[in-house]
Simulated scan of single mutants.
Amino acid sequence: MELYKIEKLIVKYFEATTTVAEEETLREYFSKESIAPHLEQHAPLFNYFTKAKEERFTKQVPLKPRINYLKWVSVAAIAVFMFGLYFYQPTPAPVTLADEYTQEEIESAQEAFALLAMNFNKGTEQLYHLEKFEKTTNKFLTKK
Rank of each mutant, 00 (worst) to 15 (best):
Y4C: 02
I6W: 01
I6A: 07
E7A: 13
L9T: 06
I10R: 00
K12A: 15
K12T: 10
K12E: 13
K12L: 12
F14P: 12
F14N: 04
E15V: 10
E15F: 09
E15S: 05
A16V: 00
A21C: 11
E22Y: 06
E23P: 02
E23H: 01
T25V: 05
T25F: 00
E28R: 06
F30W: 02
F30H: 05
K32I: 01
E33K: 15
I35W: 07
I35A: 00
A36K: 01
A36Q: 08
L39T: 14
E40V: 15
Q41S: 09
P44T: 12
P44N: 10
F46H: 12
N47P: 00
N47Y: 07
N47T: 04
Y48V: 09
Y48P: 04
F49D: 10
T50M: 07
K51Y: 10
K51V: 10
K51N: 14
K53S: 00
E54F: 05
E54T: 13
E54P: 04
K59F: 10
K59V: 09
Q60I: 13
L63P: 04
L63Q: 15
P65K: 10
R66T: 14
N68T: 13
Y69E: 04
Y69V: 15
L70R: 05
L70N: 11
V73D: 08
V73T: 05
S74W: 08
A76R: 09
A76G: 01
A76F: 05
A77S: 08
A79D: 00
V80D: 12
F81N: 02
F83Y: 13
L85E: 12
Y86T: 11
Y88M: 10
P90F: 03
T91P: 01
P92D: 12
A93G: 03
P94T: 06
P94D: 12
V95L: 07
A98F: 11
Y101P: 03
E107N: 10
E111M: 07
E111L: 09
E111P: 01
A114L: 09
L116N: 01
L116E: 01
A117D: 02
M118G: 05
N119K: 09
N121A: 15
N121W: 06
K122A: 13
G123Y: 10
G123T: 15
G123N: 04
L130I: 07
E131A: 07
E131T: 08
E134I: 06
E134Y: 07
K144Q: 15
